[in-house]
Design a protein around this nucleic acid. Structure first.
Length: 437
RNA sequence: CGGGAAGUAGCUCAGUCUGGUAGAGUACUCGGCUGGGGGCCGAGCGGUCGCAGGUUCAAAUCCUGUCUUCCCGACCA
């Protein structure tokens, strides 16, 4: 993409309403514009990141045999009256009346909707287990939206739902999703720690929140130091095999969000304990027959008798992740994108647009990289070097190829790594091969 | 929903106390000088002062109401 023809409205000043880093940087980098409190429009750069995250989440869901559907944003109130949640949900639910005076609502989640679909279409235990998900906009009318897209009222969420014949099966589905989440976050370049979550009236150990550490996190968390070294990288996971050992490995050590913390355990851990702030980026939950009963989701079991299916739901806040990643990865100059979600993988900074040698060198690099299938942002604007450096750092491209008259004369370009800040002068060939490593 | 703050140019803000021609920086446009970390000089463009009502000869400024946004707390992917 040639920057001179792109739509990238960056800001030098920070809009007054933005307080935390991710919100400030998303506005300054021209990723989003606020429409009203907690509701945002996504501009091209922000949308690229959102789509990149969405793609990774989608691929990892598909990889465990979870099938994508797409349910509506607007749901009928009757659906929620059936589960009893229409009255329980409170003012957080945005209620809408259509022209025929029918009560509707903008969905804050989709348990009722998916359970109805399942109940209408699945009759036999032979069709189980089943897992379905969608990635759709949700609306929760928060009393106090804040932190930009991290705590918006409208947000994009991946929500998956599992259906099993019995609790043993539900455990297997839960484990699949648990491990899938670990993989998803690793691909996103995040260190996410699973923490036992409050299961409310249902009880059991079948609920986990996934949190990433960031100074501006919303809750105070504590965990064992060993979590910093836990990783699935390089492991070939058989999702049809026994995943319990992996789940055990990631749940054996102490990790708790504020309301679940245990002072006694923490005391025993001593200097093995890490306390930090965390941002919740996912939540998985097994809720048995809570929805299948009222919604009538039952299948014929092997003995011919109907049984209510055991269900679980599994959420990842996709739009929240954009902010969360920035919170976890930025500096004074701007965003530092992990490679996997960066809006462009490489930026080319032409320090002297209009100079024949520089232009020629840049277009050559630009064409080469595009031929390799790279997402490239070529800053060909007629702007000063300082402006280009500042914007490139602000929008956080992992690699910057700096092309100026000084180097071009000697056949050299400068390669800057956004994360380390390291810059080195290289021949064009070695720069290109280094980027591809 | 309780407590607090703020709405004036695209953005950051002054002016409001003490009523009297609508301001600065930046961004943008044009010209010139520049050219490796948001450069310099000059000339321009740009505003129903959130909205409504009131007081007054006169309101960004005073009064009343209202809307919006942000911060802290309680609550949440």
């Amino acid at each position: 993409m040639r920057l001179s023809r792109y739509y990238l409205p960056t800001l030098k000043d920070t809009p007054a309403e933005a307080q935390i880093a991710s919100h400030r940087l998303m506005l300054r980098a021209g990723m989003v514009r606020q429409s009203s409190a907690g509701i945002y429009s996504w501009l091209p750069l922000g949308l690229r990141v959102l789509k990149n995250i969405e793609t990774i989440v989608r691929e990892e869901q598909n990889a465990i045999g979870c099938h994508e559907v797409l349910m509506p944003t607007i749901q009928p109130a009757d659906l929620w009256r059936k589960s009893g949640r229409y009255d329980d949900y409170g003012p957080e639910m945005l209620r809408i009346v259509d022209r025929h005076e029918r009560d509707m609502l903008y969905g804050p989640t989709n348990e009722e909707q998916i359970t109805e679909i399942f109940a209408e279409t699945v009759r036999s235990y032979r069709e189980l287990p089943q897992m379905l998900y969608h990635i759709q906009w949700k609306f929760r009318d928060e009393v106090r939206p804040r932190f930009g897209v991290m705590r918006g009222r409208e947000f994009l969420m991946k929500d998956a739902y599992s259906f099993d014949l019995n609790s043993e099966g539900a455990r297997l589905s839960y484990n699949k999703m648990f491990v899938s989440y670990l993989k998803t976050y690793e691909r996103l370049g995040l260190k996410a720690i699973p923490m036992a979550a409050d299961t409310g009236p249902i009880g059991g150990d079948m609920s986990h929140e996934f949190l990433i550490l960031a100074d501006t996190g919303e809750s105070e968390i504590a965990c064992h130091r060993d979590f910093m070294d836990l990783s699935l990288i390089g492991e070939n996971i058989d999702f049809d095999g026994d995943l319990q050992p992996i789940v055990d490995r990631f749940t054996a050590k102490y990790a708790a969000t504020d309301e679940m913390r245990n002072p006694e355990t923490e005391k025993q851990l001593g200097d093995q304990l890490i306390t930090a702030r965390g941002i919740e980026v996912g939540h998985i939950f097994n809720f048995g027959t809570k929805y299948s009963k009222p919604m009538g989701a039952k299948v014929a079991g092997p003995d011919g008798h109907d049984v209510f299916v055991e269900m679980g739901s599994y959420g990842i806040g996709v739009s929240r992740l954009v902010g969360a990643i920035i919170e976890a990865s930025h500096d004074d100059d701007g965003i530092i994108w992990p490679d996997a979600v960066a809006p462009f993988s490489v930026g080319i900074l032409n320090l002297k647009s209009g100079d024949a040698a520089c232009d020629q060198a840049c277009t050559g690099i630009y064409d080469t990289l595009r031929t390799q299938g790279r997402d490239v942002l070529y800053d060909d604007r007629d702007a000063r070097a300082g402006t280009k450096f500042a914007d490139a750092d602000l929008i956080g491209l992992p690699w910057q190829l700096i092309v100026g008259p000084r180097g071009v004369k000697n056949g050299l370009v400068e390669l800057k790594n956004r994360k380390s800040g390291a810059r080195e002068e290289l021949s064009l060939e070695s720069a290109l091969s280094k980027i591809s490593e």
